[in-house]
């Protein structure tokens, strides 16, 4: 009986469930692709039929309607700069916090950990207020212009720092102490020692934080909606939401699915290409 359940029934059922799940995911992705080539009536009337004649123009109409080119650029820039800044700010801090024997180190680590439990909601209202004030302030007094994308970037970074510091501190602690000694003998300055000695050794942990943040930033929706509402400032999720809205009101379902394909397929290709490396990188630092 024990063997029946533990060795046969449970594993078999789970295996079947996993395969069903896999088939569903793949079918969904394929189905979106098929839908994107139909005209609007067919999308609705015959959701599971193949398109009679492929409607490639859905893609051009979606691309234009959603201003995807600007959105794609914004998403890439926000993600790259954001994730880069997060790691650049958090890694040195995590390193000294993990290593130092100063009395302030431990409470500071807890202070950063506290940030983990502050949900986005708590600072949503202040962010909206600061966004407006910063814009007015910069425009009136300083540069004469301002771009809300910078505000979005700054807050995305600030909000991600606690988690990055928290994970990296734990990771840096696990690194052997001997590694700095080489650098000490070398007589290198702290920054050079950090970049040349610590960073290479800590790469798995840094990659994890980087990948996790890239995924988070790439899918950022709520902050983007509130801070950067204009079409040319939008990131991809906000642009897709805009397209979704616009296509609903004009019943252009083919165009909507084309928009989804434009957004999703490149990510899938990237994922298939980098696949294991993304997942490994994402988890390497946490699972130590």
């Amino acid at each position: 009986m024990r063997r029946l359940i533990g060795d046969i029934l449970l594993p078999r059922v789970t295996a079947v469930a996993l395969w069903v799940w896999v088939v569903f995911n793949l079918a969904l992705v394929g189905w979106v692709g098929i839908q994107s080539l139909k005209d609007s009536g067919d999308v609705w009337l015959h959701p599971f039929a193949l398109p009679e004649t492929p409607r490639w123009d859905n893609f051009s109409s979606a691309w234009q309607a959603a201003e995807f080119s600007a959105a794609a650029l914004n998403s890439v820039l926000l993600t790259v700069f954001g994730a880069g800044l997060i790691v650049a700010i958090s890694a040195p801090a995590a390193y000294v916090l993990a290593r130092s024997s100063r009395r302030v180190a431990a409470p500071t680590i807890s202070y950063f950990a506290m940030g983990l439990s502050i949900p986005l909601q708590t600072i949503l209202v202040p962010i909206v207020v600061i966004k407006l004030s910063v814009y007015t302030f910069m425009e009136d007094w300083v540069t004469g212009w301002w771009d809300n994308r910078i505000t979005l970037l700054i807050f995305q970074v600030a909000l991600s720092v606690p988690f990055a510091v928290f994970v990296l501190t734990g990771y840096m602690r696990s690194l052997p102490h001997e590694i700095e000694e080489a650098a000490e003998i070398d007589g290198a300055g702290p920054l050079r020692a950090f970049v040349q000695v610590i960073v290479p050794v800590a790469r798995p942990g840094l990659t994890t934080v980087l990948v996790l943040n890239v995924m988070g930033l790439w899918n950022e929706t709520l902050l983007a909606l509130l801070i950067t509402p204009l079409p040319e400032e939008r990131n991809l999720p906000a642009a897709l939401l805009g397209l979704y809205s616009s296509m609903q009101y004009s019943s252009d379902w083919g165009g909507m699915f084309a928009g989804i394909v434009i957004l999703v397929y490149p990510m899938i290709v990237l994922y298939v290409w980098l696949g294991r490396r993304i997942v490994d990188g994402m988890t390497a630092g946490i699972s130590r």
């Binding site: 940030g115 700054i154 720092v161 950090f194």
Partner: peptide, 26 residues
């Protein structure tokens, strides 16, 4: 040790960003 000398310079950016843009807004 290197990391003791670099303690504040390395910590401050993160500490400031976190305090000014996260804790203070909270």
């Amino acid at each position: 040790k290197t990391y003791e000398r670099a303690f504040w310079p390395f910590l401050l950016p993160a500490l400031l960003v976190y305090t000014l843009l996260f804790v203070a807004p909270s």
